[in-house]
Design a protein around this nucleic acid. Structure first.
Length: 313
DNA sequence: AACTGTTTAATGACTA
DNA sequence: TAGTCATTAAACAGTT
């Protein structure tokens, strides 16, 4: 295990903006949405730098969640009590970092105002993305059995070939230059989420999301009787405070590789993430439990191993 | 009370 | 150099 402070970012600020970090956390979760506290936990588990000055950066992170249109808030269902909402990535925000820098976007993701909306049918874009994610989970369920499994299907290309793979997906971020050996990273990622109260959100709280007839319906969402879409996603949230989609990235500079996601990833980033399994949590699990939402040792271990295929240079 | 979410403002770094 | 973006601080309201 690398020593903190030498080969790791334990005392160094990781080369990621809060937007990147938040997106990573959200994408690491199979449901593609996390409550704030879990976003905190994800970041602290992997980046020891953020185990300090928590008030400062958590305030910044909350600011980013509210301020940036690339994050959408998904309220809990009444039968899912808890603090705060779930946060997800807007499906159209994917290539904000296409220049490869995780510190500074070259496109600002903006949700257009209703008056700017050109194609009303695109109001379902965000919801459609989550629908695709629900489909993915359904596929996993169908393929593997009763409860959410080790989600081996998740990293076996079940969806990759047919569904949109968000550029913020951690596999896109960290694995572009690193092939996950034996799918360890994402099976453990799933392990990590196994103890997380959201992991069955789609099957328990939102069982209708797993109604294949609903899921397979790509038709526009009926909003007549509820604020919730067909898959439990409140349209208001997807429309960001009642404003309407489509939400599109506002290009500051047109790029020919806009669909390439992180194709221009600088070498140092995946290298940083791909050398040492433990090094994203280079301090001991005990250290990792020192914050306000302490992880159990096992949680910490799985969280660390969630990025075991990634490491620090 | 603690946490969550929104908003405003200031500042520094980066980019065209 | 102006505009944009990220970060930080802070105030405030709502929720649990």
């Amino acid at each position: 295990m690398p020593r903190p402070g030498r080969n790791t970012y334990s005392d160094q600020k990781p080369p990621y903006s809060y937007i990147s970090l938040t997106a990573m956390a959200i994408q690491s979760c199979p449901e593609k949405m996390l409550p704030l506290s879990e976003i905190y936990k994800f970041i602290m588990d992997r980046f020891p730098y953020y185990r300090e000055n928590t008030q400062r950066w958590q305030n910044s992170l909350r600011h980013n969640l509210s301020f940036n249109d690339c994050f959408i808030k998904i309220p809990r269902r009444p039968d899912q009590p808890g603090k705060g909402s779930f946060w997800a990535l807007h499906p159209n925000c994917g290539d904000m970092f296409e220049n490869g820098s995780f510190l500074r976007r070259r496109k600002r993701f903006k949700v257009l105002a209703a008056s700017d909306t050109l194609i009303p049918t695109k109001q379902s874009d965000a919801a459609h993305y989550l629908q695709q994610q629900a489909k993915l989970r359904l596929s996993a369920l169908a393929a593997t059995g009763t409860h959410l499994p080790q989600m081996s299907t998740y990293n076996l290309g079940v969806s990759q070939s047919t569904t949109f793979k968000h550029p913020f997906a951690i596999e896109n971020i960290i694995a572009r230059e690193y092939k996950v050996p034996g799918s360890l990273a994402f099976s453990t990622m799933q392990s990590m989420s196994a103890g997380y109260p959201l992991h069955n959100q789609l099957t328990t709280a939102w069982p209708h999301m797993y109604n294949s007839s609903v899921i397979d319906t790509a038709a526009p969402i009926s909003m007549a009787s509820s604020d919730y879409s067909a898959y439990g996603v409140p349209i208001k949230s997807l429309c960001h405070g009642g404003q309407s989609l489509p939400a599109i990235p506002v290009p500051i500079k047109p790029t020919p590789t806009s669909m390439a996601g992180f194709s221009a990833l600088p070498a140092h980033i995946p290298t940083f993430l791909s050398n040492s399994p433990q090094s994203l949590s280079p301090t001991s699990p005990q250290t990792a439990t020192s914050q306000s939402s302490p992880a159990t040792p096992s949680e910490t271990l799985t969280s660390s191993s969630a990025l075991q295929s990634v490491a620090v240079h």
